[in-house]
Lab assay of single mutants.
Amino acid sequence: MIINNLKLIREKKKISQSELAALLESSRQTINGIEKNKYNPSLQLALKIAYYLNTPLEDIFQWQ
């Protein structure tokens, strides 16, 4: 199971779900699903999230 700190990191950087979704060329619903652990992002999307949040991938997503 993958757990994530996306919501915590996103809020700390003062970025809304909609703003992050626009940067990622994704939907706000996708970001919401990832944050609620209802959806696991593809590797490509996970890497883009890490890039746009300027945060190491392993700080956002962790195996448990």
Rank of each mutant, 00 (worst) to 15 (best):
T55Q: 05
L45Q: 06
L53F: 08
W63A: 02
K48Y: 05
L43E: 05
A46Y: 04
L45M: 13
S26R: 12
F61V: 01
L43P: 09
L53W: 02
S42N: 08
N5T: 03
N40I: 15
T55P: 03
L20C: 04
L6F: 00
Q17H: 03
K13S: 09
N54D: 14
E25K: 15
I60Y: 02
L6I: 03
K13C: 14
L53Y: 01
T30K: 10
K36T: 15
L53M: 05
I9K: 02
N54M: 10
L53K: 00
N40C: 15
K48W: 06
D59V: 08
I15T: 03
L23A: 15
N40Y: 13
N40E: 14
K38G: 07
E19P: 01
I9D: 00
K48L: 09
Q17Y: 07
K7L: 08
P41T: 07
L8A: 14
E25T: 09
Y39R: 10
E11Y: 07
N32T: 08
K48T: 05
K38Y: 13
S42R: 05
L24C: 15
E25C: 15
A46I: 05
Y39K: 10
Y52R: 04
Y51P: 00
Q44S: 13
L20P: 00
N4I: 11
S27T: 14
I31G: 01
Y52F: 14
Q17A: 07
T55G: 04
R28H: 09
I31F: 02
Y39A: 09
N32H: 11
I2L: 12
L24W: 02
Q29H: 13
A50T: 03
Q29I: 10
E19L: 10
K48F: 05
R28Q: 14
K12T: 11
L8Y: 11
Y51E: 09
L23M: 14
I15P: 00
L57H: 01
L53N: 00
L24S: 09
N32M: 13
Q29R: 14
L6D: 02
L53S: 00
A46C: 09
K7C: 10
E25I: 08
L20Q: 00
S42H: 06
Q17F: 04
Q62I: 10
I2W: 10
Q44P: 10
Q17D: 03
I2F: 10
L45I: 08
Q44L: 09
Q44E: 14
P41W: 05
R28I: 15
G33A: 15
D59L: 12
N4K: 00
L20M: 05
A50I: 05
G33E: 15
I9S: 01
S27A: 06
E35T: 02
E19V: 11
A22F: 12
E11L: 13
Q17G: 03
A21G: 05
G33W: 14
I15K: 04
K48Q: 10
Q62L: 08
A21H: 03
E35D: 01
N37G: 15
Q64P: 14
Q64D: 14
I31K: 01
L24E: 00
E19A: 14
T30M: 14
I34G: 02
L23D: 05
K13N: 11
R28A: 14
Q62E: 08
Q62D: 04
S18N: 12
S18V: 12
L47C: 15
N5L: 08
Y52V: 15
L57N: 01
M1G: 04
S16M: 05
Q17R: 07
E25Q: 15
P41G: 04
E19D: 11
N54P: 01
N54E: 14
K48D: 05
Q62N: 05
T30Q: 09
Q29E: 15
M1C: 13
L8P: 07
Y52E: 05
K36V: 10
L20N: 03
T55S: 08
Q62A: 09
I31E: 01
N32S: 14
K48C: 09
K13A: 12
L47D: 04
T30V: 15
R10Y: 08
N5G: 03
L43H: 10
S26K: 10
I2K: 10
A50E: 03
L23R: 09
L45W: 03
L47I: 12
K38E: 14
S26N: 07
S27E: 07
P41Q: 02
K38A: 11
R10N: 01
S16K: 08
Y51M: 11
D59G: 08
S42G: 09
A21N: 02
E58P: 09
L43W: 12
A22M: 12
F61C: 03
K14F: 09
Y39W: 12
N40M: 15
T55Y: 05
M1Q: 05
N37Q: 08
M1N: 05
